[in-house]
Amino acid sequence: MTSPVPRDLWHAALADDPDALATQTPGWLDAMCSVRPYRDVSRLYEWQDGRRLVLPLVRSRLTTAARAEELGWPLDWGIGGPVAPGGPVTRAEAATVFADLARRPGAAAYLRPSPLTDEVWRAAAPGHVRRYPRITQIADLSGGYATVWSERFTSNTRRNVRKAERAGIGVEVGNDPRLVREFDRLYRMSVDRWAAQEGTSRPRARWRMWRKDPRRKFAAVARHLGDACQIWLAHHQGRAVAGIITMRQGEHAKYWRGAMDKTHAAATGAPTLLQALAIEAACAQGCRYYHMGDSRPDTPVTRFKQRMGGRLHHTEGWWIDPRPDTAPTGPGRHEEAAA
């Protein structure tokens, strides 16, 4: 095991893993470390048969290694988990990762693998790990945009897209600082609206937003991911009324954050149009999936994603407490196949 992972090996692993996400890239880690006091403690696992796994991890720079959590990723930074070139993670490999993280010194480690590999991690999880249940939504893009439009969008979704087109909604896409500022303005308006809906005071909601999603976080992701990160803004009558941020890695597109000026956007269908255009672009780029992020059961946001084709996936994050008696052993891919 090597830590941190050499960047050339990490990029090579990404190029050979069709299931890798934008949130498993060095750019995502670098954005995180530029916003919060984290350092790169990623791990490269190598077996004698040549098999490699890259596990993205960070640790706080403000805590000693003997007392620090290692996180893949922090809860507000989404999905991490191993990058697996040449084929998906096997149960034996997942067990090795669990065992290795249990042997590290310090506080617990946290691991949030891709929902598309969840069954393997559930099967490999030892009894001492703590489960952190999550629900995420993913849209299947197989068949292309025409299929998604006719078979996976609901009639209500198609109607709202047409409404936005009739309303003359204009859309711009990019990731320059001006778009970051405009999106942040809409996001702050959304935070105030969410606070009112939840019965939370506006100052408290803004403080939580400052901790979780400050403007510098949006700017850092746009800067470090480059063209893989796109900010979509919908304009109506000269005003930006809705926005989303999407990312792409290989065959996987991801909707990351969304915001709107509800007073001016709600009746125009602009939020639905932005999602439809982002999905259309993902299909044109050859993506198989459009990841729509974590959701709470039976909420308006969850139902909106379902109308866009987002299927519910019940998945897990894993807290792994230190266990010095746990040995990080396990067969490589070829050894497991022989067994």
Rank of each mutant, 00 (worst) to 15 (best):
T2W: 03
S3W: 10
A12W: 03
D17N: 11
A20E: 06
L21V: 02
T25D: 06
G27Q: 04
D30C: 00
D30W: 00
V35N: 02
R36P: 00
P37T: 10
P37G: 08
Y38Q: 05
V41D: 09
L44G: 09
L44P: 07
Y45Q: 06
Y45E: 08
E46H: 06
Q48W: 00
D49Q: 05
D49E: 15
R51Y: 02
R52F: 01
L55T: 07
L57E: 05
T63S: 04
T64W: 04
A65Y: 02
A65L: 05
A66H: 04
R67Y: 11
W77M: 10
I79F: 13
G81H: 07
P82E: 07
A84S: 15
P85R: 12
G86H: 09
G86S: 11
G87S: 09
P88A: 15
V89I: 15
V89S: 10
T90Y: 10
E93Q: 15
E93Y: 11
E93N: 13
A95Q: 15
T96P: 14
T96V: 15
A99K: 12
L101G: 11
R103G: 15
A108S: 13
Y110G: 02
A123L: 09
G127C: 07
V129R: 10
T136H: 03
Q137M: 14
L141V: 04
G143N: 07
W149G: 02
N160L: 11
K163D: 00
A164C: 04
A167M: 11
G168T: 02
G168S: 03
I169Q: 00
V171N: 02
V171E: 01
V173L: 06
G174P: 04
N175F: 02
P177S: 04
V180P: 02
E182I: 14
L186Q: 04
Y187D: 05
D192H: 08
R193L: 10
A195S: 13
E198D: 14
T200K: 09
T200Y: 00
R204H: 13
A205F: 05
W207P: 00
D213S: 09
P214V: 08
R216Q: 12
A222E: 08
C229A: 15
Q230R: 15
H236S: 08
H236W: 09
G238L: 05
A240V: 10
G243N: 05
G243Y: 02
M247N: 01
Q249E: 14
Q249C: 11
Q249G: 03
E251M: 05
H252G: 00
Y255H: 13
G258V: 07
T263N: 12
T263Q: 13
H264Y: 11
H264D: 14
A267C: 02
A270I: 03
A270V: 03
P271K: 06
T272R: 03
L274T: 01
A276N: 03
A278S: 13
E280M: 04
A282F: 04
A282G: 11
A282K: 07
A284D: 08
Q285V: 00
Y289W: 15
H291P: 03
H291I: 06
M292A: 08
S295Y: 00
T299Q: 08
P300K: 11
V301P: 01
T302L: 05
Q306Y: 02
M308E: 05
G310L: 11
R311Y: 02
L312S: 14
G317C: 12
R323K: 14
P324D: 06
P324E: 08
P328C: 10
T329F: 09
R333M: 03
H334S: 13
E336L: 11
E336A: 15
E336D: 13
